[in-house]
């Protein structure tokens, strides 16, 4: 028996909007720790890892570890039917091939339930080792989204370079080139507007902008994004989910010519 009650149902709506275009089908894993997902895109270039900790739910009942295969497009369709202020409860019985989403309006005058078919998904689970990153950039998520969108109108790839001077995003395409430098800036009034760079050594990596733009669909989940870079590892693009956990996107770099 599984029963998860999330008062801030909009978080789950935003999570699905953030990942549904990257991954078609995925297993949601439910354990005492929380509600989690790990999935790769169909090309095995990017990986998404989601964790919503059990403490973040108003009510969290998970009698035994459960893996539920869902089509994310269909799940997003159902969650779109929940209001932004609705409380969302997920329910599943042991051995059932369906999951039920219950939506309650804040005033309890409208209660809906949507039952969705589960599916068998043969997915690989990858071990993600703890890593020391050469550079960690923390910046406003809206700024990162703007940069990825702007650069993708010029080129297909972005070179992210971190030095003591700041973080540089560069692209080139048929019409020309673009470079955007964000300097460390931690003197702003609001912490969510700061750009903070921690660097042990300079790093420069090339990534496909198509994936970066897809990751920025998680922007509504957090005002801050963290980019963790090492010269021989996938970049980690992390959006923290307040009080609950995170959504992390891993993207394999392109090989430098």
């Amino acid at each position: 028996m599984l029963e998860l009650r999330l008062v801030q149902g909009s978080l789950l709506k935003k999570v699905l909007e953030a990942i549904k275009d990257l991954v078609n089908d995925a297993n949601f894993d439910c354990s005492a720790t929380g509600f989690s997902l790990q999935a790769m895109d169909s090309s095995h270039v990017a990986l998404v890892a989601l964790l919503l900790r059990s403490e973040g739910f108003e009510h969290y009942r998970c009698d035994r570890n459960l893996s539920m295969g869902m089509n994310l497009g269909n799940m997003a369709k159902m969650l779109k039917c929940a209001g932004n202020d609705d409380i969302i409860t997920l329910k599943a019985d042991d051995g059932s091939d369906t999951v039920t989403f219950m939506f309650e309006s804040p005033t309890q005058d409208k209660i809906s339930d949507f039952e969705m078919k589960l599916m068998d998904i043969d997915s690989e689970h990858l071990g993600i080792p703890e890593a020391e990153y050469h550079a960690i950039v923390r910046m406003p998520s809206s700024e990162f989204g703007r940069i990825c969108k702007d650069l993708s109108s010029i080129g297909d790839t972005v070179v992210i370079s971190v030095t003591k001077e700041g973080v540089k995003f560069s692209t080139r395409g048929d019409i020309g080139t673009a470079n955007i430098v964000c300097r460390q800036n931690n003197t702003v009034d609001k912490p969510e507007e700061a750009t903070i760079i921690e660097m042990t050594e300079p790093v420069s990596l090339t990534f496909a902008l198509r994936y970066m733009n897809s990751f920025t669909k998680a922007t509504p989940l957090s005002s801050i994004v963290t980019l963790s870079l090492s010269s021989d590892l996938p970049v980690v693009v992390e959006y923290k989910i307040a009080e609950m956990g995170y959504i992390r996107f891993y993207l394999a770099p392109k090989i430098e010519e």
Partner: peptide, 14 residues
């Protein structure tokens, strides 16, 4: 065009 690496070349199956 820079060739694209795959995630599976960095992280192994558990």
């Amino acid at each position: 065009v820079n060739p694209q690496r795959q995630i599976t070349s960095f992280f192994s199956k558990t």
